[in-house]
Write a protein that binds this DNA or RNA. Structure first.
Length: 467
RNA sequence: GGCGCGGUAGCCAAGUGGUAAGGCCAAGGUCUGCAAAACCUUUACUCGUCGGUUCGAUUCCGACCCGCGCCUCCA
């Protein structure tokens, strides 16, 4: 079975492979750094991380570019309100974004590129578009003329043909020739920052950065372009228009879009005020970042995900179950030999996991394969049917799972006890238990719990874990 | 209005033309000094509604109802 992905362009699930060699050229839309990103934003970034990881597990190499939009109207407005330069202002939120990404264990893309570092490339591209008569200037700004790109609408599956023919208006009296035309280069208003250029002073429009940086780093045709569904129109539609007008080639073979995170049935967004940042959840609500990662990863990316604290709690418990299984696997003594039936059970579980992920990143199905396996193996451990020889297979399955979901190892927490300190307290408690001094034994257990250490008495001795 | 996504147990959620995965929660049980972990049992005669096709539909077709989103900045 091969990897299949839903392609917004064709509105179908298609088998994926890169156009050239084994290398996947992928571009994904990153954040606009005007504020802290919220977990709705991170749903998409977690999805992109899953996609990255699964592509590599599927045997492909990656060349992935993610942009950081560090100039736009909101940034300019907020920076000026705080009396900061653009750079001073965006540095704060760029750093916050990268910190959050690290907490959520998002792999770094091969290239992280900032819009303001590519102004010259953008100006050059706009000039080339102008030479092809795809642009016009108006009030010091430069616009893309959509009537020069007949395929406009092919991604969002909108038909604009009627619109464009009838709506032609006088360029001199209206800013834009057509309502659908969009700015490539924006003239500065009073007091706004700008770059000097042959186009006149100004700053780039939102869409041009992605086309220019994608083509610069990855070539004229990408294998995958990804982002949230709200970018389909107009952002990605406009990227296609610019890029294909520029190169005459298809801009991206696959377009994949993740659905929204909802809160109480509505889109999580800054403007509605119904949003949580990662910081909110970690600091105010005391969840581990892995819990957020798991929750966002566990619902398949094309399904809207209603965010609730019940959902977070449920994710936390599910992670505990997975970690407990790993702990048991790592610490328990098993009888010699190998149980062939369980070996083939492991093979089946691995295949089911692969099949689920290959099926348009169906994480729910992949997870089900893992949990079913864990239940069966726990049961086999209880009945002593699980043997030493079955350990490597089980470890392999867990590591396959964790190479995608990456939630098994807890984030290191500061100010806790050293392993040796824990071990010596456990020894003390074991001695107390032997002496049937259960009061002291329980006291030590409580004391450890206060320091984030959980003890479990098993037949083969005490095992412990960090909360 | 156009385009798109979705409606499956208390919650999250997979899925197939042949009679409903998985996770969480809840109840009971096994184990245990207690606790934890783990396991077992119970929990949708039913998959938004109404028709149609079929031996048989949650799964195909049609109509309708409801929720969310995009069409302006937005993951």
């Amino acid at each position: 079975m091969a990897l299949r992905l839903y392609n917004t362009l064709s509105q179908q699930v298609e088998e994926f492979s890169p156009a050239h060699d084994n290398l996947v050229r992928m571009y994904t839309c990153g954040p606009t750094v005007y504020d802290f990103a919220h977990i709705g934003n991170f749903r998409t970034f977690v999805f992109i991380d899953l996609l990255r990881r699964w592509l590599r597990i599927s045997g492909f190499q990656l060349d992935h570019v993610m942009n950081i939009t560090d100039v736009d109207d909101k940034i300019i407005r907020n920076a000026s309100a705080q009396g900061k330069s653009l750079d001073e202002y965006t540095e704060i939120y760029t750093k916050a974004f990268l910190d959050d990404c690290a907490k959520l264990r998002l792999e770094a893309p091969e290239h992280r590129v900032a819009a303001t570092k590519h102004i010259n490339d953008m100006v050059a591209a706009i000039e080339r578009l102008g030479a092809g008569e795809h642009t016009y200037a108006s009030d010091g700004s430069v616009y893309f003329r959509i009537s020069t790109f007949p395929q406009y609408g092919k991604l969002s599956h909108n038909d604009f043909s009627g619109n464009i023919a009838g709506a032609r208006v006088d360029v001199d009296t209206y800013e834009k020739a057509d309502a659908r035309d969009f700015a490539l280069w924006k003239a500065p208003k009073e007091g706004e920052p700008f770059w000097e250029s042959p186009l006149g002073p100004g700053r780039p429009g939102w869409h041009i950065e992605c086309s220019v940086m994608a083509i610069k780093y990855l070539g004229e045709t990408l294998d995958i372009h990804a982002g949230g569904v709200d970018l389909i129109f107009p952002h990605h539609e406009n990227e296609i228009a610019q890029s294909e007008a520029l190169t005459g080639r298809p801009f991206s073979r696959f377009w994949v879009h993740s659905e929204f995170l909802l809160v109480e049935g509505q889109k999580m967004s800054k403007s509605l005020g119904n949003y949580f940042t990662l910081r909110d959840i970690l600091e105010k609500h005391h969840y581990q970042p892995e819990v957020v990662r798991y929750l966002l990863a566990s619902v398949p990316y094309r399904k809207q995900l209603n965010f609730t604290f019940d959902g977070l709690k449920s994710a936390a418990t599910a992670i505990d179950r997975l970690r407990n299984f790993k702990l048991r696997l790592d610490t328990e003594q098993f009888p010699e030999g190998v149980n062939e039936q369980l070996s083939s059970r492991t093979t089946r579980a691995c295949r089911a996991f692969h099949d689920g992920m290959h099926d348009d990143l169906n994480t729910a199905e992949a997870l089900a394969a893992v949990f079913e396996y864990i239940r069966d193996v726990n049961s086999a451990m209880d009945s002593k049917e699980f043997r030493v020889g079955n350990v490597p297979g089980a470890v392999e399955l867990l590591s396959l799972f964790d190479s995608v979901f990456d939630v098994l190892s807890p984030a290191p927490s500061s100010g806790t006890l050293l392993d040796s300190e824990v071990e010596s307290l456990i020894a003390e408690r074991t001695a107390a238990k032997k002496a049937r001094n259960f009061q002291l034994a329980d006291q030590i257990r409580e004391q450890l719990l206060d320091r984030g250490i959980i003890l479990e008495d098993t037949k083969s001795g005490v095992r412990w874990k960090r909360k």
